[in-house]
Design a protein around this nucleic acid. Structure first.
Length: 243
RNA sequence: ACAAUCAGGAGUCU
């Protein structure tokens, strides 16, 4: 059964979720009944290939097969809505899962927070952020990074910075994604001083800048007319073997 | 035994 799941996942990753779907009858024939794990793998696979409507049809089908949706199933769907800025629908699902006695976990909260950040509704994002803490769920580095990114996008680096400090205080170490968001946020405000400070800081903390971090640095330096710094970074990038 | 793995969440440019 686990083997099947791996296989399904592999098919989805290789851009062939259709084949994974056709594989379902084969499983049934072999008396292997898909459980909620298989279905989640599939639904998520569909979602990532932008076959969103397919993902929902699949959910209906899994219910017919007697597989009850769980927290993960709901979170995948919430995430689909969040990533397409359909927060009304996302919130409906959020309420629905609570009604069904499936309390949202930290990842569910992070997904919906991310959605509100996407549409720039930081007020609601923050309400959910506070609510998850009230419910004794610990925001992890991804949760913090989501909301920090939301503030960075809006150029609100005061809030971004205070959350950046807060996460460290709470024992959640910023990772390469967090730093990249902060760096980009400062650049967008023209604060290249802060951006390069953070870039040095992350390296000092042994957080290795990845391709996206370098892209961020290079694109922003170019935009601000520092072709020299951009090409220096390009050299560093090659030296580090990132490319 | 340890480690690795063990369905869902975050970043740049185009």
């Amino acid at each position: 059964s686990y083997t099947y799941q791996c296989f399904i996942k592999w098919l989805c990753k290789n851009e062939e979720p259709e084949k994974a779907l056709q594989f379902l009858p084969v499983m049934l024939k072999n008396d292997v009944y898909p459980d909620v794990f298989h279905c989640c793998t599939l639904v998520d696979g569909m979602a990532k290939h932008l076959q969103r409507s397919m993902a929902f049809k699949l959910c209906a089908r899994m219910i017919k097969l007697g597989v009850e949706p769980n927290v993960v199933t709901y979170t995948i769907l919430i995430n689909i809505f969040s990533n397409s800025s359909k927060m009304h629908e996302a919130y409906d699902l959020f309420k629905e899962m609570i009604q069904k006695g499936l309390p949202p976990d930290a990842i569910s909260y992070t997904s919906i927070i991310h959605g509100y950040c996407r549409i720039g509704d930081m007020k609601r994002a923050h309400i959910f952020f506070d609510e998850m803490i009230k419910k004794d769920l610990t925001p992890d580095a991804v949760s913090y990074t989501s909301i920090i990114h939301g503030y960075c996008r809006l150029g609100d680096m005061k809030w971004a910075w205070s959350l950046f400090q807060d996460m460290k205080k709470k024992g959640q170490q910023p990772n390469v994604v967090t730093f990249t968001c902060m760096i980009d946020g400062f650049f967008k405000l023209g604060r290249k001083d802060m951006a390069s400070l953070l870039f040095d800081d992350m390296k000092q903390k042994n957080i290795i800048p990845d391709r996206m971090t370098y892209n961020t640095m290079i694109a922003n330096y170019r935009r601000l007319g520092h072709a020299d710094k951009a090409s220096d970074l390009l050299k560093d990038m090659k030296k580090e073997g990132i490319c």
